[in-house]
Amino acid sequence: MRRFFSVLSAVVEKDLRLEWRTKESLLIMVVFALLVLTLFSFAFGPGGGSGESARAVQAGILWISFLFACVIGLSRTMGVEREDAGFSAMYASPADPSALYLGKVVSVVVLMGIMELVGFAVLAVLYQADVWKSAGTLALIAICATIGIAAAGTLFSAMSARTRTREVLLPVLMFPVLVPVLIAAVKATQAHLGGDGWADSRDWIRLMLVYDVIFLVAASVVFEYILEE
């Protein structure tokens, strides 16, 4: 068990150090998310305030922009592994494949978490969304959704990184599988942007937790087949 966690933390440390030195993925994720947030306001109108429909639009815009931005981030983190023969190294190493997988998931969650902090702040400024009143619950929702996105995304990006088309296939594989997370995250965020609605969002948070557990377990089990050369 200690070995498992030392492998996991080694992967996280490696990924985050690489990111700290190059700042490639994070920067492009944040900029891309901002861009999508801005573009949506042109597409749907300014949509500010805290009315029912405005909140629905804000929550939708927010999670769609996070989802799009994470595709880019995931492509980068797995592209690095492919280019530097990381997959071969992982396969050759005696480390538990599920520890390697969970390490990757954690580093993706950290990167996405930083991007999401910026995203929520921008939402508050550009759309006058009330994110402070229930910041704690929004953070909980974001964590649950991000784990789900990272769990499915890490698995599928490890696959798509090694297809002939490289990362192009990732959204096609990933988005249908992430439908439950997207629905739950949008609905829960919508309920809390106004500062109320714990009763509305409780079931959605539960759904995301169930999804997270199922995907983390299933993907950890099958990840060794993905690493195999």
């Binding site: 090694r162 599988v177 439908v179 439950p180 629905i183 169930v210 199922i214 299933a218 099958v222 993905i226």
Partner: peptide, 21 residues
């Protein structure tokens, strides 16, 4: 191998999709 993984994950996903929708 990749296809088989996709088959398993896709199948597990459909009941959750149904419930969420």
């Amino acid at each position: 191998r990749f296809a088989a993984v996709m088959g398993i994950i896709g199948f597990l996903n459909v009941p959750i999709v149904h419930m969420s929708v």
